[in-house]
Design a binder for these strands. Structure first.
Length: 447
RNA sequence: GUGGUUGUAGCUCAGUUGGUUAGAGCGCUGGUUUGUGGUACCAGAAGUCGCCGGUUCAAAUCCGGUCUUCCACCCCA
């Protein structure tokens, strides 16, 4: 049998895990700096927790977990005969893999509401699963790093999350464009165009602007049966990138005006802050997820062509679907897998993302192996990551191992060294070699 | 989910109109070098040509199916 792994999944070797951890650790430091605390939730959620939260499309992409035992027991014959797979899904499966971290978080908040002190700021770094068709930068299993705060309507949260984006990507060395919009402005546009009921289809069309152009967007809206007059109004509004100017269109849209006000507050705060990356108001930013109600974010890498590497927004009533009303939240997500791809393409991972072995002992014979073993214990005790080549095979082979592992120092042990209570310490980068007392080994390497 | 694309040694790939023992570079193993890696030279091992089936005297090559890869759409991180 030839081994294989499921479509859209990947193995991660030592280099990749080290690099991924580097990304996680870098982001984690930023999250903690802003007062966010970690939580984790199970890989599986009840299917009822997940379905209906991501739109019909999302439900299709959920991985369902087959019930244990006689899973066909509950299947109704009439549903089987009719080929009604959607109904049968719930008869053979009551669990699913998490699709994102936001819905499980909302569920967590509701379940633990009595123990949580609001506002609750949490971060969460865990894999999620989507039954999407894989392509580049698109996997069926990938990590997300989410930062959310619930139980506060203050726009300060929006400002801080923008800072976290800015600081996080700056710390990783990725140049990004952070785009901000507000769902209320999109609602305002729909109201100004006289099509408040078609706000969602309008939004989906607008979201594609930079991909298919204005004519494409107009075609798409026509296909969604949005009137010609409304389309003209929308087109006019979309050319505006100044919030003050936008106000004149929203005379009849209270929601729209509120959206402008909110964004202005956010930008006023942002002006007081030192920021590394470019942050722009983008009226065409829409985002698909249905639960956003206020500020929305999207982050694009500037130097690599790839889908968005982060996104998020405010949701006024995410916990409402689990029975806890009136808890507003806002959060953003870092797409770890894509960030990884971007950093790899730009070749900007630091040389040693690995906290690897610093010193290896190589030996000529069994006696030297014993001697080196004792020395090994001493340097480890002194805090050096060290290992020993466990067999005193040919020197060439041992050196080759040290070289391929990129271990910076090699301690060579033979008769001469043993007699003097030393090792021959070789710097693998420069090729220099000098004899060092075993007692001085750790301090020598720390320099 | 729709349309297309890809698969040959551990890796990256070549392989003519179907025709004998399927090649290269890198890597790997051994040697030049019985106290030394990264350079050089020499030698060697390694492939069910993704998988299943069909056409043919003959298939890596043609046809069908399937899995996988990547791309566009859809959607999204």
């Amino acid at each position: 049998m030839k081994p294989s792994i499921p479509k859209g999944t990947r193995d991660f070797g030592p280099i990749q895990v080290n690099r991924r951890n580097y990304i996680f650790n870098t982001l984690r430091r930023v999250f903690v700096k802003y007062g966010y605390q970690p939580i984790e939730t199970p890989v599986m959620e009840n299917l009822s927790t997940l379905t209906g939260k991501y739109g019909e499309e999302g439900d299709q992409l959920l991985f369902k977990v087959l019930n244990s035992g006689d899973f066909l027991r509950k299947v109704k014959d009439e549903d089987y005969q009719a080929g009604n797979y959607k109904k049968m899904t719930f008869q053979i499966s009551d669990k699913g893999l998490r699709y994102d971290l936001t819905i499980p978080f909302a569920r967590y908040v509701v379940m633990n509401q009595n123990d949580i002190t609001f506002p609750f700021k949490r971060y969460q770094i865990q894999p999620v699963w989507r039954g999407d068709r894989p392509q580049k930068g698109r996997y069926r299993e990938f990590y997300q790093c989410d930062v959310d705060v619930v139980g506060s309507e203050s726009l300060i949260n929006e400002v801080e999350l923008t800072q976290i984006y800015d600081e996080g990507f700056a710390a990783l060395g990725v140049n990004v464009l952070i785009k901000i919009n507000n769902r209320k402005i999109l609602t305002g546009i729909a109201e100004a165009a006289g099509i408040p009921d078609q706000m969602m289809s309008m939004t989906v069309a607008i979201d594609k602007l930079d991909k298919i152009g204005m004519d494409g967007v107009k075609d798409e809206m026509r296909r969604k049966e949005i009137g010609e007059e409304a389309i003209n109004t929308i087109e006019k509004i979309l050319t505006i990138n100044d919030l003050e100017e936008l106000k004149s269109f929203f005379e009849n849209s209270e929601t729209g005006r509120k959206g402008i006000e909110e964004l202005q507050t956010v930008f006023n705060y942002l002006e007081k802050i030192d920021l590394t990356n470019e942050i722009v108001f983008d009226i065409t930013l829409a985002r698909g997820l249905t639960y956003y109600t206020g500020t929305i974010y999207e982050v694009a890498a500037k130097d690599v062509k790839i889908g968005s590497i982060g996104g998020g927004g405010r949701y006024d009533d995410l916990t409402g679907m689990f029975g806890l009303k009136g808890v507003s939240g806002v959060g953003v997500s870092f797409g770890a897998a894509r960030i990884y791809d971007v950093m790899e393409e730009l070749d900007i991972f630091p040389d040693s993302t690995a906290e690897g072995t610093q010193l290896i002992f190589v030996t000529f014979d069994e006696k030297a192996l014993d001697y080196a073993f004792d020395a090994l214990q001493a340097v480890r005790k002194a805090g050096i990551n060290a290992e020993i080549y466990p067999e005193s095979v040919k020197m060439k082979k041992q050196m080759k191992y040290a070289n391929s592992r990129k271990i910076p120092y090699v301690a060579v042990v033979g008769d001469n060294e043993m007699q003097a209570g030393e090792v021959a310490l070789k710097n693998m980068k420069t090729g220099e070699q000098a004899n060092v007392k075993v007692a001085d080994l750790a301090s020598k390497i720390k320099q």
